[in-house]
Amino acid sequence: MAKIIVVTSGKGGVGKTTSSAAIGTGIALKGHKTVIIDFDVGLRNLDLIMGCERRVVYDFVNVINKEATLSQALIKDKRTKNLFILPASQTRDKDALTIEGVQEVLEELAKEFEYIICDSPAGIEKGAQMALYFADAAIVVTNPEVSSVRDSDRILGILQSKSRRAEEGKEPIEEHLLLTRYHPGRVALGEMLSVSDVEDILAIPLLGVIPESEAVLKASNQGTPVILDTISEAGMAYGDAVDRLMGEERPLRFLEVQKKGFIKRLLGG
């Protein structure tokens, strides 16, 4: 039985696709057969982040419309074993996704894969609802910033009321908070919401904290999931988050301000 995990946030630009790519890669590295689906019809970007944009021939909508088979549309990742990508359609409108069509594709994928990661589009419209509808677990990507936290709370409400699990009265979707673009220095100065502030407000279990890191932009420039940059803080933090997702205990890292020299400390810079 495959586990369907939606990576969602409500707000755009918080790191959903970066997180989907990193977490999907991390799970595959652990030996689980994994597929990441881009649900952002019309604004496909997962292919770029994964570095497979030139290998896209068929997409999710082609499969739903039976213009291509799943095996034709799935892209096998070149770096990571056990990892596949199902790209979104770039041209068609959002109505191309239907509940029945998505369900059919997910059921077929579930026969072959252990983990199905759904990279949600921003917003709370149809595309986002489609991405979360069949989910067993949700990773809510949040920045320590007011609009992102509020939108995350909104999306939690939707997970609890408009998912298949909610509609069928089943066990609710497992919720995980992933705090990204975290800046320990600014938190220490009282300029940024802290991990515990966001936990207090959203009241869902914390999966991980990804520090603001230059490695993220560098990785996306190169089309490599940042988790493969194992010497970067962001890469290691994603690694920890994947371990926790798999049920392992990992202490939080990179939440403290790095030690400064005497002069810098004196000047308070």
Binding site: L189, G190, G268
Partner: peptide, 28 residues
């Protein structure tokens, strides 16, 4: 805490705590 911090007002709430208060109200 650097020497410049001593010139700052001690009583003013930080912007992060303002953000938290506002969020708690609107989210509730």
């Amino acid at each position: 805490m650097g020497i410049f911090d001593y010139f700052k007002s001690k009583n003013a709430p930080t912007s992060a705590s303002v953000a938290k208060d506002r969020l708690q109200i609107i989210v509730a």
